[in-house]
């Protein structure tokens, strides 16, 4: 996976996601890619960079107990953002429930670089 840090950007105190928007049909697509619009078929030239809020609601989540390379257990989430786009990433939530409000933040995981993680909106540091 190339350049994961290109997928988000800090804007003030909030983390925005970087996707693409189709100039032909208006669909917002994430992750970004240069190949074409899945919604209408327009070619890659019709896809322009588009930043959108990482705020959304928990569409679903799970705890993973088994992984060949990553320390377990950990949580992952599928979040429906305000831009109507589904985004999957790590989740850090003490008691997640479908439909709850979450937002992206940056966390250092295993002494690695900063990772994008969804957390409860109520707990997001100002």
């Amino acid at each position: 996976m190339s350049d994961r840090e290109d997928l988000w950007i800090e804007k003030g105190s909030e983390i925005f996601l970087r996707g693409v928007r189709c100039t032909n049909c208006g669909s917002i697509l994430f992750p970004p890619q240069p190949y074409g619009c899945e919604a209408c078929g327009a070619d890659g030239g019709s896809l322009e960079d588009f930043e959108f809020s990482s705020q959304g609601t928990l569409h679903s989540f799970t705890t993973v107990y088994v992984h060949p390379k990553i320390e377990t257990p950990y949580q992952v989430a599928e979040v429906r953002t305000e831009a109507r786009q589904y985004v999957r990433a790590r989740l850090d939530h003490p008691d997640p429930k479908v439909g709850e409000a979450v937002i992206g933040c940056l966390q250092i995981i295993d002494d690695d670089d900063a990772q994008f993680v969804f957390v409860p909106t109520s707990q997001a540091g100002g």
Binding site: M1, L7, Y35, S60, F61, T62, I70, V87, A89, I109
Partner: peptide, 28 residues
């Protein structure tokens, strides 16, 4: 993988976690 479309999931999402999320959503 060879399509080189980046993802945020850092390899965290594997087939069973996709379906575990579908199960969670189905129960809700």
């Amino acid at each position: 993988i060879n399509a080189n479309v980046p993802t945020l999931d850092h390899g965290l999402i594997v087939p069973f976690s996709h379906f575990a999320m579908l199960a969670e959503r189905y129960m809700a």
